Simulated assay, not measured.
Amino acid sequence: MKTMLHDIKFNGKKERALGAAPFLQRFTVTCLDMNYMPTIVVPIPISDSKRKQRGYNQVDMLFKNWVNQQNWKWVDLLVKLDGSKPMWTLTKEERRKNMKGHFLVRSDMVSAYADKNISILLVDDIYTTGATLLEAADTIHAVLPRAKIKALTLASGA
């Protein structure tokens, strides 16, 4: 998994994302067992400068086809602002501070979900300290306080 994610993120090998399918299929079974179906699935975005550099968001490569296969709704609800440091160099506390204020909820999408009891599945490639997912969830809750948020990652770097 580590090699696959590294190749996708840093070596431009988008086709390696197909390797996530067995892991995601297991999660599908778990969701069926729990009768869980999110209202929307929200990917953790990358900044515009990172997207220009890489050409894609690895989270989209890893999860979007699977989400579509489940007939779930993929929504690019969040925007990632430029300016945060690369996370791999930081401690847990530095990661938390680094992510603070670096996400925004797309204002054009708020009205579709405001004042509704929605279930959001946040998806990201790697969970290390939780700083990214917590900041994303906090950002969403500030605008959509009734949302119930769960998260799914493919790997843990902790």
Rank of each mutant, 00 (worst) to 15 (best):
N117Q: 14
H141W: 07
F63N: 14
M87F: 12
R16C: 06
K92V: 15
T129M: 08
F27Q: 05
M99P: 09
N65E: 14
L90K: 04
P145G: 11
D60A: 06
S49Q: 08
E93V: 11
S156G: 12
R26I: 02
V79G: 04
K85I: 05
N68H: 09
F27G: 07
G19C: 09
A158Y: 13
V105Q: 12
K148H: 15
M37P: 02
K50D: 12
Y127S: 10
L90G: 08
Y127N: 10
R95M: 11
I140F: 04
K100P: 00
A112I: 01
T132I: 02
H141Y: 12
R96G: 03
G157C: 08
L133Y: 05
M34Y: 12
G12T: 05
N98E: 13
I126H: 10
K100V: 06
K73T: 14
N65A: 11
L144F: 00
T89A: 06
D7V: 08
E94I: 12
K150G: 03
S84F: 02
I120K: 03
G19F: 01
L62Q: 12
Q69R: 12
I46N: 07
K100T: 06
M4L: 08
W72C: 07
I118K: 01
A131K: 13
D108W: 05
E93A: 12
L152S: 08
K64F: 13
K52V: 05
M34N: 04
A142D: 14
K64R: 13
D138Q: 14
Q53Y: 12
L81V: 03
L152Y: 14
Q53P: 07
S111Y: 07
F10T: 06
D124F: 09
E94R: 08
Q53R: 10
D108K: 01
Y36F: 13
L78F: 03
E15Q: 02
E135V: 07
I40D: 09
P86T: 12
H102T: 14
S111C: 01
S111D: 14
I44W: 01
I8C: 00
W72D: 07
A136K: 08
I126G: 01
A112E: 15
R51C: 09
A21P: 02
L62M: 05
S156A: 14
K100M: 03
K50A: 09
Q25H: 14
I126V: 15
K9V: 03
N98T: 00
L18D: 09
I8D: 02
E135A: 02
A20E: 01
V42R: 04
A158P: 10
F63D: 01
L144D: 00
M4D: 00
L78Y: 01
Y113N: 08
D76A: 11
S107F: 04
L133C: 03
V110Y: 01
I149W: 03
M1K: 03
K80G: 09
A114G: 07
Q25M: 11
M4F: 10
F63S: 11
N68W: 13
I120C: 08
T30H: 05
Y36A: 05
